[in-house]
Design a protein around this nucleic acid. Structure first.
Lengths: 207, 207
DNA sequence: TGTGTAAGTAAGTGACTACTTGCATTTTAC
DNA sequence: GTAAAATGCAAGTAGTCACTTACTTACACA
């Protein structure tokens, strides 16, 4: 069964050319398959693309943040790096999907699944940071999460286009963004910038 | 001369449908013009789209930040709001352009003009903040600028799609992002979250 | 040996695409 | 008022698109 090869090819061609540019001929060639096989297997180009996108989304798998923060800088940096790499590896297809969303709203669920999950995970972590006494003062996790995710997303989408407006080197960018957020929240980092340690330590060191 | 009407129509149709979806017939209909007039005026669809994009880019006009910071929170908030509104008003066409950039690299200059200018302006402002003594400790303006711009960009692009992952209300979002950056840099805001006023005041209050 | 299934080949359909040609009509400039 | 420029109309060209029909090949399994 060439189904899976066709699905994989469809994802690749869509990432390169978008919906309108993903001709059935191109997909068939990329899959090493006769064009007709596509129609026999999927019925129509639209159905194929839809199934290909869902297939891709489901095989995602995102790094999770711990329920109880132990080392915020390390944990948030690791998560940010993983999230950024996830986005960077898929930046072509993400750009295409975002661009076609107005014309094909049925892709909306596919498109928003990963960022939604990442957002709620990050929000929960920031809330835990507060709950466990890492951050003083009142603060709302959502803007912080939006800020970090926004920075990571923009970096992953825009660095190819304008490498000079993003922090160098690329490998340190996620860490830098995470560090700035922690600074904004007043969480002590490994290399503290302020000299007054005012944070309560967490109630428990191991979860 | 219907040139300008055709250019405006081309921008609108491109924003809705992208390059491949911008058929000459659609543009002609949107402009209230015979399809042939397009070819007589611009020669080809490609030339028309190119000229339309340049025409749009040149008529931009971005809010500038002051050379010498006086009221960082107010100034940065105003700039962030203006930048966000600029992006939000154009989010369809930005999405399309980013998506087509790999297939049509000649649009690259058009696409990166505004963000490049915004980035260098913001970097200069953050450097001035440091120079004028608003922010203590060593810090690099570029990551901060990338973080704020990234948050604003992502908000402007993604809020339609997933309103619930961004801070509410929409009107306060830019202010919130600007505030978080100032917090990260350790610049005192109007409603200070930390109790110790450690910043040197600026050398001059009026520029 | 026979049957069902997945795949291929060849040819074609109707709709749409960018773009052209020839000629008539309107608008603008002086 | 008239010439020139801009625009419109009708028709058509060559190419591409998604998708179809009719028939053939390869192979698994019973």
């Amino acid at each position: 069964m060439k189904r899976d090869e066709i699905l994989a090819a469809a994802v690749g061609v869509f990432a390169q050319h978008g919906f309108r540019g993903s001709t059935t001929r191109r997909i068939a060639d990329a899959a090493g398959v006769n064009e007709i096989t596509i129609f026999r297997q999927f019925g129509s180009k639209e159905a194929l693309i839809r199934e290909a996108m869902q297939h891709m989304t489901q095989s995602a798998g995102l790094e999770r943040l711990p329920d109880v923060p132990v080392d915020p800088e390390r944990e948030l940096t690791a998560w940010s790096e993983a999230f950024m790499q996830h986005l960077r590896l898929r930046n072509s297809i993400i750009r295409k999907t975002m661009s076609e969303l107005e014309e094909r709203p049925e892709m909306s669920e596919c498109a928003s699944y990963v960022p939604r999950q990442a957002s709620s995970d990050l929000c929960a972590y920031l809330a835990a940071l507060k709950r466990e006494g890492w951050v003083t003062g009142k603060f709302d996790p959502k803007p912080g999460a939006a800020m970090l995710m926004g920075a990571i997303f923009s970096d992953a989408m825009g660095r190819d286009m304008m490498p000079d407006v993003f922090p160098q080197p690329q490998e340190k960018a996620a860490q830098v963004y995470a560090g700035l957020l922690l600074l904004a929240l007043g969480v002590e980092t490994g290399a503290p910038r302020t000299t007054h340690k005012q944070n309560k330590r967490p109630k428990q060191l191991s979860a």
